[in-house]
Design a protein around this nucleic acid. Structure first.
Lengths: 257, 257
DNA sequence: AAACATTTGTGCGTATGTATC
DNA sequence: TGATACATACGCACAAATGTT
């Protein structure tokens, strides 16, 4: 009861707060969560839109703020909304759809989604292949490889940190060309290796560490998807091994079968 | 400096602590992290093995325990080791390789990795399809669908919570059969729908919420991969939509191209 | 720079209905 | 019929983050 009524079991004289069904066997917070979820998935609440304040929503549904917060909590867990103290609660932008296919190209995928691809080289150096890198590239451990760390973004929003390893003597000056053009794809084309294809992709996930949060502009407690991929030439000989960390908030990987 | 020496800038009189290079431009913790990482990836430290205590490792490398902990922290972030207070630091078991292919079957994959598949039905009910479920199954929103929540495990270790939606009138009593046999695949076979194939898979990730941590026996701060998949009959008509949450710690998704 | 309003986040106490032993 | 535990819901108060004046 919200009002201080001395006849306790009277149903709330329905001067239209909203139609949550009390005593229907379904928890109030669950009904509210489902209503808001439907508002989002059916487009009445658009991505980026701000929800009314918790106090306002609580009043509108005729429940306590705690009850309403319980509903919002499930939506947050499902990744549908995001709340910031002092600002409000917002409907999350849907993640960019990132298809994993034999011909996976970052720039093409981002352009295809109507966004502007970008990126920059964070670091590059020649190093000796550790055993896992060597295994993926099918070379002897210790072989010289070019390591290229890149940050890639769409519409200036960082999406992924990628560490790429190339067999050094097949890729002279790749790092310089990539830094100049901002595109690994174009750099490889310049070297006559434009026709690479993806051989295998391995996906796992974990919490973003501090460096990743900083580079990807993520608040604490966010996850990254760790995507390892082996790319090869038309003869399926490995050229490149990549370990990329995608912001799980902003990217959804798609596999078509 | 570790020792309380009154001649401060003296290099540590190299009575062989271990060969970390002081003043080499590379941070000590980074060198240590890379050494241990190599020990793991090259098999000198096997999965499940316990590392020496932090104090012991610190002494062995000739650094302060804080420095050593900084190294271990990066390995923990990378998911290579896991520390438990009072027990020690352990090399993590490699994740189960879970291939995503047109014919993706949980039981077969787990068996193929030499582990015993298992599972149980958490809940099942008939409900009205929400708009996103309806879109995936290509039916009208509100159509009756059977919802089946399952927990699946390998060698009694929980791997994934899957929520499966089936078009209700194509799958009578599926829930009962699945509960009895413990296998959705076998239950579908019993209904003559054994030949389903995966049409599309969508992958994202986030922090595990409380319910997921409880069901998957995960400590706080772990990530789950959220894998949505659409399965269809041989004519590629959708039969089933699944939203599964995999323990990112224990599973690595593999896509072969 | 400082004060303030707005909004979410958190804690405590209380009451009630509903399962379970 | 308790007795107990648990989830739900409400009320009040304050902390923390943000934006504005």
């Amino acid at each position: 009861m919200t009002d201080t009524d001395d006849t306790p079991m009277t149903p709330p004289s329905d001067e239209a707060p909203s139609d949550v069904a009390r005593g229907s066997g379904v928890a109030l917070w669950k009904q509210i969560a489902e209503r808001i979820e439907a508002d989002i998935s059916e487009g009445r609440l658009k991505p980026g839109a701000r929800l009314p304040t918790e106090a306002e929503l609580a009043e509108r549904f005729g429940v306590n703020r705690h009850t309403l917060r319980r509903a919002l909590a499930t939506l947050t867990d499902q990744g549908l909304v995001e709340a910031t103290p002092g600002r409000g609660t917002f409907v999350k932008e849907p993640p960019l759809r990132y298809p994993i296919s034999p011909r996976t190209r970052f720039s093409e995928i981002v352009s295809g989604e109507g966004r502007a691809p970008g990126g920059r080289v964070i670091a590059s150096q020649v190093e000796a292949a550790s055993s896992d890198i060597a295994a993926a590239l099918r070379v002897a451990p210790g072989t010289q490889v070019l390591r290229l760390d890149m940050l890639r973004e769409a519409d200036n929003v960082p999406l992924t940190i990628g560490t790429h390893w190339y067999i050094a003597d097949r890729c002279r000056d790749l790092d310089l060309i990539a830094a100049a053009t901002g595109s690994v794809t174009r750099a490889l084309e310049a070297l006559g290796l434009g026709d690479y294809r993806r051989l295998e992709t391995r996906i796992t996930a974990r919490l973003a560490d501090e460096e990743e949060r900083s580079l990807l502009a993520l608040p604490p407690g966010r996850a990254v998807m760790v995507v390892e991929s082996i790319n090869g030439d038309p003869q399926r000989r490995p050229i490149q091994f990549t370990r990329a960390r995608f912001s799980a908030d902003r990217v959804q990987l798609i596999v078509k079968n």
